[in-house]
Design a protein around this nucleic acid. Structure first.
Lengths: 358, 358
DNA sequence: TGTTATCGTGAGACCGGTCTCAAGTTGGCT
DNA sequence: AGCCAACTTGAGACCGGTCTCACGATAACA
């Protein structure tokens, strides 16, 4: 109505009139509730067909309080990790006749907060969120509908959560590197950390990041590598600046002989930087990354990866959430999915000469 | 209400009572319409803050007829092409305070039809669709809200459309191949064609597929290549079966000496198949693909690609749609975005010996 | 055959907003 | 002082569904 002339749509009342029954009766058959006689049932259906009636879900949601849609807030759908997870979520949602409203946070809390507010105003029945920052979660606490955390756990927020065994994965991957003889191993992540990191592993409360670092450090400790923390690189977002910092890392005198990357987009950047510096994989430097992205299997050499069950991650999150929507009130569950390492050709031993450090 | 106890939410009436004004007045300030005195304005705002009022967008949409969201139906978000386009769409949508409801069609008309029905019932203000099948578009015709076609034009449907210059792109890419001396060039696409194709290019009405084939054939004709149509391969979806068929193509006696792939996932599969067959790029076979996917730049050799402005594709589609939502009633526009060919190392001349055909 | 469940149906309230309309206030102008 | 315009406010209809409740009719039971 109002400004847009609005193509007068057919309502239950119209159908009721056409079928010569009351609005209540027509609504019963159209809405599929209550009981109606067979005769009236077909009459209403015919009237509906004749008029080409289409239910207004909004009006329905209005009274039922259920909107039939869930909100999904991810960092960036462009990242294959998220798009695959979203695929998992929407496949499951569709099975339950639920649709997905997507929002990008760009990994920024402010955008995330805003997205959640809007989604909530839209009366989504539930939310799946990949929290951008673990320090700032007041807005997540306030959420009044079922919430499921995807990929990143929040120790202080006891809700359904699906993650992978990040710590163990990082441990195994790093161990693979130390066992190959590496001593100068870097861990490169896109996550940003405010303030100084040294010795503050416990301060990082984005589970994904913290757990991986913990695993990384544990493997280093096992191998007797000291001061491994100084080889952790934060903030390697896809940008000019971060690429430059990567190149700088690779050109430094005591450059690492092996690198563990936290996700495939950082790894791709790293791969390019390594080439740019004229270094060979795995001759000069070994590379392992989280996420079995497309490209990792077709490079020369192909990259050894930590294969996360990304689709399953999304699938499980959706299943958990939908179970809640159906009234399940078991205590919050924290599902940890196992990862496997796919060994390809990007790991080798360090060159002897690179073992003398400054 | 009803089954879920529903945490009684704060409504305008509650705020009105708290502020000691009428519901209408409270609604005016909360809804930001009409005129209210300064004093009452602050009073209502304070009451709202005190009660932590959050508007119910559903109710608002109910009366305004506008839902503030658009529906996006793509083939598969998992495909980087689509996820990037969706990124473009949602970035633009967010600027206008519109959110995106995402649906996957899996490239199947039935799912697409269903998704559109649901989206329409949810009262989306507009739709952006990448039609799965051009033959079956009755459901698109019936759409009663603004519709924008993404990446694929439909000759018989005169609505806003954003595509790339597929024909010219295919022409240029193929020409690059013929100029390098190739005579046996294959075009491999994931699209399915019902029935026999030969000589029926005009029968294909998915613009993307048709235009590209037309460009491909034109370049072949220019080069005096006869019966180029027999080298068009349809239905190369990511699956066991289609992979096998690719391998078969590569092992045949008169295997092509160059291939143009219609999208990056087909190309990736092709790349792997080529390796599997022990063939070298570009020594034994040249490869060019649509879409500058991540992986194409890091393989050895890197792949020459037709770079489509995918993000811009989504962006433009969203802009066009939103313009419509704002009341623009210019005749439907068909935007064709230019592509560029990024020459890398995957194109070479055919081996002499492979020129004798059986 | 009378009484009581059971069933089918209609009337109308309700969800939480928007918006029209009329009434009440205030102020400016003659 | 008197009148009209402009502004502020409240009452209530409305959007398109769902759902409660009451009533009449039919069926089952004694």
């Amino acid at each position: 109505m109002k400004r847009p002339p609005k193509i007068s749509s057919i309502t239950v009342s119209d159908v009721a009139r056409e079928a010569k029954v009351s609005k209540a009766t027509a609504a019963r058959v159209l809405g599929g509730y209550g009981r109606v006689s067979q005769a009236v049932h077909v009459a209403v259906l015919e009237a509906a067909k004749a008029l080409d009636y289409r239910p207004n879900e909004l009006a329905r949601s209005m009274t039922t309080g259920r909107s039939g849609s869930i909100g999904v807030v991810v960092g960036d759908i462009e990242n294959p990790f998220f798009s695959l997870a979203v695929r998992g979520i929407s496949d499951i949602a569709r099975l339950s006749g639920i649709n997905v409203i997507l929002a990008n946070s760009g990994e920024e809390v402010e955008a995330e907060r805003n997205a959640i507010r809007v989604l909530l105003a839209k009366q989504v029945d539930g939310l799946i969120v990949t929290p951008a920052q673990a320090g700032d979660i007041a807005h997540l606490r306030e959420i009044s509908c079922p919430l499921t955390l995807l990929d990143r756990a929040l120790p202080e927020l006891d809700v359904d959560t699906v993650t992978v065994d990040d710590r163990d994965a990082a441990l195994r991957a790093t161990r693979m590197l130390t066992e190959a003889g590496h001593r100068r191993i870097a861990y490169v992540t896109a996550a940003v950390l405010s303030g100084d990191f040294r010795g503050a592993a416990s301060r990082i409360n984005t589970s994904t990041v913290r757990e991986r670092i913990l695993g990384f450090l544990e493997a280093c400790r096992e191998a007797g590598i000291e001061d491994a923390e100084r080889n952790i690189r934060f903030g390697s977002r896809r940008s000019e600046r971060s690429h430059a910092s990567l190149v700088q890392l690779l050109r430094s005198a005591d450059r690492p002989t092996a690198i563990l990357a936290s996700d495939s987009v950082v790894a791709l950047d790293l791969f390019k930087a390594i080439r740019e510096c004229g270094l060979g994989i795995p001759r000069d430097i070994s590379l392992v990354t989280f996420h079995d992205a497309d490209w990792t299997s077709v490079t020369t050499p192909p990259i050894t990866v930590i294969d996360q069950p990304v689709y399953a991650l999304g699938k499980s999150a959706a299943e958990l959430l939908i179970r809640r929507l159906k009234g399940d009130d078991r205590p919050p569950e924290r599902i940890v999915l196992p990862t496997t390492i796919i060994e390809r050709m990007s790991v080798g031993g360090p060159l002897t000469q690179s073992d003398d450090r400054s």
